[in-house]
């Protein structure tokens, strides 16, 4: 392994941080800067860093599934999130919300907002993560 000790040591900490941060970006995206696209890119950066430090095979093992599978699953999730409202008679990709534990009296209290929009964003996250990793890992293995 030709990578420097510093990179490898830093990677150990950074990868975990990047992945947690990517999920944080994904979840807060609806109200603050962030979202599935950005989150997916950050997550991919984490794995790319890991691949640079420990090699592509290690990165693939850490992923456990092929990155292209992740992308396809993400696409499926996004499609599913869009199809659900249509199944109950709404328009395709219509937003559906459920405010868990919200106080009905207070219009500003949204409790824990759950929605198919979030599911869709998770799909976007996975597609971006999977696609970028598919590309980068294949390219790096090629070189």
């Amino acid at each position: 392994m030709g990578t420097s000790l510093i990179v490898r040591a830093a990677t150990r900490v950074l990868v975990g941080l990047l992945l947690v941060f990517s999920i944080y970006m994904l979840l807060r995206g609806h109200n603050e800067p962030g979202g599935g696209f950005i989150g997916g890119l950050i997550g991919a950066t984490g794995f790319i860093l890991y691949a640079i430090a420990h090699g592509c095979r290690a990165a693939r093992e850490a992923l456990r599934v092929e990155p292209q599978t992740i992308a396809m699953v993400g696409l499926g999730i996004a499609l599913f999130a869009g199809l659900v409202p249509m199944m109950i008679g709404d328009a395709l990709f219509e937003g559906m919300w459920l405010f868990l534990a919200a106080d009905p009296a207070d219009p500003n209290d949204k409790g824990i907002p759950l929605s198919n929009i979030l599911v869709f964003d998770v799909g976007v996250y996975l597609v971006v993560l999977g696609s970028v990793l598919t590309l980068v890992l294949a390219l790096e293995e090629e070189v």
Partner: peptide, 13 residues
Amino acid sequence: AHGRNIVNVILVD
């Protein structure tokens, strides 16, 4: 759309 980040709301909703 229950979101304050307009860019993201446009994207996902």
